[in-house]
Design a protein around this nucleic acid. Structure first.
Length: 374
DNA sequence: AAGGCGTGGCC
DNA sequence: TGGCCAAGCCT
């Protein structure tokens, strides 16, 4: 079998850009170091559409590096209003003054010197070097990270040192020695228009033939590793009356399942038993815990132990429990096969709660209905 | 090195 | 619908 020649990423990206790239952005006209610099700062964590509304006005007010340096910080911040990340504007102003003071009023064509200016990091410095000074330099912004992470199927979150190092290494390797200016712009355009975070257009992508992530783009770049969620435990009382109704409790509006209907919740079995004995006669037989199961929230796992207790409402001293606004005896065959969604109005204490159910409660109610509680 | 910084768009 | 993310950098 003949070895396939390695896919030439930069060549493919450059060819694509010549045909399909963006060439009419405001900062691409007269790409002077100053204009490229201002645009790159504005574009940090900010989408092109938003920046377009600010760039020309800013450049009109501060047409040169000198004019920016001579302006007051307040004036600069004023022109930045609405763009967000205002430290960018303060740094821009500081850097302009520094450049006037120490770099002869010009932005240096030197990556290290650029990076010494406040607000200019490795990638922004490279963008200025490449796009404005026409020197070979490697950028790695969010677009390029996404493109390269997919192209090389690089696992891991780019916020991690090792992942970031890998991405920089790949980025350096791909940077051509010719047309690096076009290459830089092409990679950003690919990330912004085709290799988007969601719904990338792989079929239109010039890198698709060599892309290791083309079938699973959603895996890249990797997401931040979540530290393992804490585990909490709770106990739910499934009190069932002689007609098969279950006691539900309306939860307080704050906290988990706020305002939803749930089974009465207790810290543990003994708290549950105390409550049961206080409000009903002690159950006729020992309470057996049902099979515990896990419900996961965004911020913790909740291990739920349901405990069923058959109670007789004839023999209850439940007057203080039976607050119709907070408790209801519920049988969901009265309303339908599933308690999903908002049940129709019902009159407590017998009937249907006028609100939603906590998710695990739906599961338990269905099992109760089908008599399949484990 | 993890978190803060702003606003707008996405599903 | 609210969490996640976007042409990052600084501390």
């Amino acid at each position: 079998m003949a070895a396939r020649p390695p896919f030439d990423l930069s060549h493919a990206a450059i060819s694509w850009w010549r045909e399909n790239g963006r060439k009419d952005l405001p900062w691409q006209q007269e790409p002077t170091p100053y204009r490229v610099w201002v645009s790159e700062i504005m574009l940090q964590q900010t989408q092109v559409r938003t920046v377009i509304g600010y760039f020309d006005a800013f450049m009109k007010r501060f047409p040169t590096l000198q004019s920016l340096a001579e302006a007051s910080e307040d004036d600069v911040l004023h022109r930045w209003t609405g763009l967000g990340y205002y430290a960018r504007a303060r740094n821009l102003h500081k850097a302009a003054r520094h450049a006037c003071e120490h770099f002869g009023g010009e932005l240096p064509a030197d990556q290290a010197k650029l990076e010494s200016l406040p607000g200019i990091g490795r990638s922004t410095a490279a963008a200025i070097m490449s796009l404005a000074h026409q020197q070979r330099a490697t950028i790695l912004d969010g677009n390029v990270k996404r493109v390269l992470a997919r192209f090389h199927a690089i696992d891991g979150w780019p916020g991690e040192r090792t992942t970031l190092d890998t991405l920089w290494a790949r980025a350096e390797e791909h940077t051509p020695s010719q047309d690096f200016r076009i290459y830089s712009q092409a990679m950003m355009d690919l990330g912004a228009t085709l290799c988007t975070r969601s719904n990338p257009h792989c079929l239109l992508c010039p890198l698709q033939p060599g892309c290791a992530g083309q079938h699973t783009p959603q895996l890249y770049p990797g997401k931040k590793a979540r530290k393992p969620l804490p585990v909490r435990a709770t106990t739910l009382l499934i009190a069932v009356d002689d007609q098969g109704r279950a006691l539900l409790e309306k939860r307080p509006s704050r906290g988990i399942w706020g305002g939803l209907w749930s089974f009465p919740e207790f810290a543990d079995k003994s708290a549950l038993c105390n409550w049961l004995a206080r409000n009903y006669y002690p159950p006729t037989r020992d309470l057996e815990a049902l099979t515990p199961f896990r419900h996961t929230f965004s911020h913790y796992h909740l291990d739920i132990t349901p405990i069923r207790a058959d109670v007789s409402r004839e023999h209850s001293n439940a007057g203080r429990v039976m607050d119709g606004d907070k408790y209801v005896w519920y049988k969901h065959e009265d309303v339908g096969s599933s308690p999903d969604g908002a049940p129709p109005d019902g009159a407590p204490p017998d009937g249907t709660p006028p609100g939603g159910f906590a998710a695990p409660v739906v599961r338990l109610l269905n099992q109760l209905q089908e008599n399949t509680l484990p």
